[in-house]
Structure formats: C-alpha cells, structure tokens
Design a protein around this nucleic acid. Sequence first.
DNA 1: AATTATGTACACCGAGCTGTGTGCTTACCG
DNA 2: CGGTAAGCACACAGCTCGGTGTACATAATT
Lengths: 190, 190
Amino acid sequence: MTELEKGPQGRRRGRGAHERILSASQQLFRDQGINRTGMDQLCAVAQVSKRTAYQHFTSKDELVAEYLRRFDPDVMPGVFDRTDLTPRERLLAAFDIPASTPLCPYIGAAVELHDPDHPASQYARDYKKAIAARLATTAREAGATDPEQLGEQLALLLDGAAARTRVLNTDSFPTASAIATILINNAIPA
Amino acid sequence: MTELEKGPQGRRRGRGAHERILSASQQLFRDQGINRTGMDQLCAVAQVSKRTAYQHFTSKDELVAEYLRRFDPDVMPGVFDRTDLTPRERLLAAFDIPASTPLCPYIGAAVELHDPDHPASQYARDYKKAIAARLATTAREAGATDPEQLGEQLALLLDGAAARTRVLNTDSFPTASAIATILINNAIPA
DNA sequence: AATTATGTACACCGAGCTGTGTGCTTACCG
DNA sequence: CGGTAAGCACACAGCTCGGTGTACATAATT
C-alpha cells in the first residue's frame, strides 16, 4: 500500500489506479457505508485523481456495482471448497465468521440504495440466491431429505445473524450456528 | 387527511402539525428510506411549513429518533397480548407478518444511519432487545427449558426474514416460521 | 377584545454531493 | 527516440440537503 511513497515529482502513484479505486471502495463502503462515502474522500484514499476515477468508472453507481462484484472472492466460497471437511461440517463451517465482518455488504447495499432496480441491488439478489444454492447442493451431498429447504433455511440464518450483529453490535453468529446444528440434525436422517 | 382542504385564505392546515409530521415520517422513511427523504419533501407531504417542522423537532436526527419511538405500538405487542392463544401459539404468531412490511425500520435505520451512537440506533438496539425479552418470557410461559436462548433464536429468525425479504424481494417469513416450529418443538419438552 | 401560541410563506445560507473541462506530466513500448 | 496511453491538479458547474431569518396570519385562551 505504501510502497510507492511519492512520485518523482512529489505526486503520481503509478498505473494501478483501477485496482486502487476498488480497494479503497472495499474499505470505505464497508466502514462508512455507500451513501456516507463521497467520491472526493474515496479518491483521496485511493490516491487517485477524481478525473482518473471517472475515466475508469462512468458513475458512482457503476463503481458500487463493481465493488459488490469484486467482493465475493474471499468470503464464502472458501468454505464450500474445503475437501478436508464432510459436507455436513462444511454447512456448519459457513457460520464461523471472523466476527470482524461489520455487515454483509449485500444487505447493506440493498438497504442503502433502496432501489431494487439498481445494478448493485440486482447483483445482491443474485448473490444471495447463489449462496442459498451452494448451501442446498452441499445439503444434498450431506444427504438431507429436502436440500433446497435446508439451504434456504441456513441462508436465512446467515442473514439474520448479519443483520442482528449490525443492529445489536454483538456477535450473533454463535446463535445462528446453534440453530443450524439443530436444523441439520433434523434434516439429515441418521 | 383531506378534511381541512384549504384554509380560509388558501393556506393553513390547522394545529396538528406535530402529528402530521410524524405521520409523514412513518410513510416516507419507510417507503423511501431515511437518507433519501429530504425535509422539503417531508414537509410537503405533512402539509407543514419547514419552519414549523423545525420548531417541533430541532433536527432531522431528532425526528428520526422520534419516528422510531412512535413506531412500535401497532406492530409486535399485539401478538404477545393475545389471550386467546397459548404461549406456544403466540410464539408462532409472531411470524405471521402481513407481508406488506417492507423492512423492519429498526434494521433500516441502523444500516442507513451507520452510527451506533445515533439516538435512533440506540433505540433500535433497545427495541431489538425488548423483542427478544418478550419472546423469552413467552417462551418461559410455554415451558421452554432455556427460554432466553429460544427467545434470542426466534428474534434472530425474525431479523433474518426481514433482511432477506428486503434483499430478495420475496417473502421469507414462511421459511422463518418453519424454522421456528422446529426450534419450539425441540425446546419445549412434551 | 387582547394576548399568546401556533403556523405560514419564502428567500436564503453554507456545505457536500456527483460529475466535467482543461491543460499538463509521466510511464510504457515499439 | 518518439508516440501514446495513463494519470495528474485544480477549478468549477449544478444540484440537493439540512437548517435559519424575517415578517406576517390565524387560532385558542382569558
């Protein structure tokens, strides 16, 4: 982050503007929210001129959508690909959240943007469905009698924990995990 | 609402400014969100001059806090006081939501304001705790082995359904209700 | 009838927002 | 070396927002 201290003439950060902008988005949109983060501040953090930012993203809305698209990689997928765990263990592992996560950014975006037609809102829906589907297929592997239902239920637990953690400012994922255990035990015949 | 069409001189709505403002808040903050509702629009809907609004509420923040405080009455409490239901039935009745509810305004406020110290955020926390407590006492009446735990679990389900309904734009309360049934059956010894 | 509380109209302020226009500088690549 | 793509600084347009100042009008109370 600080490897390119100051350019030759006291300015200029180099060529990776696009990535720096997205990186700053991740940080600021998460910490402050989307609406409370101005493009000026974002550009300052990204060490990018405003002009450059608008050459990479035609509007803030577009940046927000791209920010959500880039978010996924290092959050959920890791859980589902762990071959060292049984499917049943994988379902439960989804509830082991680092506790540093402020709020699922997809929920945050949907609430803040308040427009179901916003590209970011649409992507948030797609993502939520994808997570539920992932949980469902894993539930199937685990031998659940009704995998779709279990997947949807577990997804609801994740969202509930995320929302509640945000509002109450206390980690609600253990509670969700406890419920998940019960549901899984009930849904998978011994 | 339209009983006082136009004042004697083509203006003036009468004395209930305070209530009209709060009423407009309920409508607009719910439908559009807090940040996307300006005081100008709010005053127009409330048929109140901006000056009057700021004589009743010193700031928008204060209005938001009061809006949340006034929200409660006709939502949850009705469920817990129904003597025609057994405690167990009351717990389940909490999940019968009219489906018109856009999003729990407490979650919305906490996400939109993004400041845990905001009076409205604090009240949202208090309210959420109160709901969990209500559920817990009802769970105790129903004979649950660990009422506090069950109360917290059911509260999480409600929040999960609310958040998920908002993001996915589909009613998630039936799913939550199904989970609740399982939890209740597991928590209350036959 | 006089007083007081309440409400009104409307212009205005300063701040912050998204987004541009312009002219210049630097880094890369053939 | 020379051309081009990428990035820069900086001012500014145009808008909306929260909030205020001022002078006036009406309603309830006494």
